[in-house]
Design a protein around this nucleic acid. Structure first.
Lengths: 169, 169
DNA sequence: ACAGAATGTTGTCATTGACAACAAATTGCG
DNA sequence: CGCAATTTGTTGTCAATGACAACATTCTGT
């Protein structure tokens, strides 16, 4: 910050007013008007999405699993033997990023990549036994996360949001 | 990718089958099963949020405004003269990031930072005349974005989502 | 008056999304 | 069949973002 000579004026006399019970809250608690932001779905969508991801990451911190990794593990479990391209299409993860993400999962011995019998370019992805075990633990934590989410937004609101968001692909 | 000798087998004979109208779609269109992902609000929340932000960025590409910049401009317009700290608290933008974001808006002559009369540490933020003009254009584009969003998710669903998301923060 | 908090700045690091170039393999089409 | 275009996976790079630490300056509370 550029430091400049103080320009203190008499204008801050009102700061000395002692606050009655309906007066303004202390400065650090003030929230400002949202203006037009109040009419943008994306703003509220993003705020909740950030809350959800942060809670997920914290809740699963013990397993060091991030949301994208979790989603890839689930998709491999539900669709064993598929290629990176198929998984990337399903989750909208770009090829380059998925390749690096899978390197990490392979390094941890959770995922194997075998040669595909039908297409020598592609890998056939499977969970290892370790991967299945880890994913079981991870799913437990993910359920805890989902419960916290429900109590944060309200179970009813959570269900309504699920319905609205799921069936519109 | 590691290149290995082809292991072509007879197993791909079915690839020659000609597809009837109910047969599987071509490989590149296949979507896989979601597994447990289908029960996670965060997954669907994130997918829609990504769609919204990408559409926003594309729709406002002519003005080179990103979502975070837009939100800061709106908050300054709705609350002229406030400090960076107040704006950061409202939008949950971290101090360091907001400082750099405002440097950029100041460089573009959309925002000014005057010395605050009451607190020599803080800046008093205002839109310039240029900033007001630019924001008017930006708001027009943002309305176009919001209309596209409504036609993507359905106007009714959009309204329901707004209600669910807005009044719980 | 003085310790601790707040404000804004700069530096650094990790994650993420996007894009380009590449080798190997497959597909499509004449 | 033969060859161009496409697909698959890999690596490299860049920009945006979020997080955190250190710092000088200023304010607050007691």
């Amino acid at each position: 910050m550029k430091r400049r000579p103080s320009v203190a004026s008499a204008a801050n006399a009102k700061k000395r007013t002692k606050r009655g019970k309906n007066a303004a809250p202390p400065k650090r608690a003030q929230k400002l008007a949202l203006g037009q932001l109040d009419h943008h779905l994306g703003y509220f969508l993003r705020r909740l999405q950030i809350w959800v991801f942060q809670n997920f990451i914290q809740t699963l911190a013990a397993m060091h699993v991030r949301p994208a990794q979790y989603s890839v593990l689930l998709i491999i479990q539900a669709n064993p033997g598929r290629s990176q391209a198929a998984i990337g299409r399903t989750l909208s993860i770009e090829r380059a990023r998925l390749a690096r993400l899978l390197h990490e999962l392979e390094r941890r011995k959770w995922v194997t990549r075998r040669a595909s019998g039908s297409d020598a370019r592609s890998h056939s992805l499977h969970l290892t036994a370790d991967g299945e075990k880890a994913l079981a633990k991870i799913k437990n934590l993910a359920e805890r996360h989902e419960a916290r989410l429900a109590s944060h937004v309200g179970p009813k609101r959570r269900a309504q949001l699920m319905n609205l968001l799921r069936d519109f692909g």
